[in-house]
């Protein structure tokens, strides 16, 4: 059979283009980084109401993403929501014991995420500890209800 170098080259380039394209989709489009984020630790926080917080949501501190939500479940002792957070390992032993966690909303209609604010306690949170001081999600219906009842009582 006749072998043509240009054809083989064409197929080779085609395959190469496919691999490069997949790399582009991986790095640029899905934002995958090849640093293994294995160095993490877990904290728990109980919220009275999580609104529409979802697993994989961001956890931020001063606006900087420092981790994400790994699990949300119902705590049957208190009937509130237990949220498991996975934070960067470099923060382990750095967050004070009275750190507060609040569920915030990005923009008016945006996704919900957790914001952490450090306190002043010299003791620090370790792996598996629970954040005591939490602030629930803002639920629009409740706000409107409050607003309406205030209007009526005035």
């Amino acid at each position: 059979m006749k072998r043509s170098k240009t054809m083989e080259l064409g197929v080779g380039l085609f395959m190469l283009a496919g691999i490069l394209g997949l790399l582009f989709l991986g790095m640029r489009v899905s934002g995958m980084a090849f640093t293994t984020p294995d160095d993490t630790f877990r904290l728990e926080a109980n919220f009275a109401n999580i609104g529409s917080l979802k697993p994989r949501a961001r956890v931020t501190m001063a606006g900087v993403t420092v981790g994400r939500v790994t699990a949300i479940e119902l705590d049957t002792d208190w009937y509130d929501a237990r949220v498991v957070l996975e934070l960067n390992g470099e923060l382990e032993g750095e967050l004070s014991r009275d750190t507060t966690a609040a569920i915030l909303t990005a923009g008016l209609l945006g996704e919900q995420y957790i914001g952490l604010t450090v306190g002043g306690d010299p003791d620090t949170l370790a792996d598996g500890d629970t954040i005591r001081d939490t602030q629930s999600a803002m639920v629009l219906e409740e706000l409107i209800q409050q607003f309406v009842s205030n209007m009526v009582s005035d």
């Binding site: 997949l22 989709l25 991986g26 640029r28 489009v29 899905s30 934002g31 995958m32």
Partner: peptide, 15 residues
Amino acid sequence: YWSNMQSSVDFIGDV
């Protein structure tokens, strides 16, 4: 354009 894309596209789940 890029950062919203990167935060919402999951490599395994979407690509």
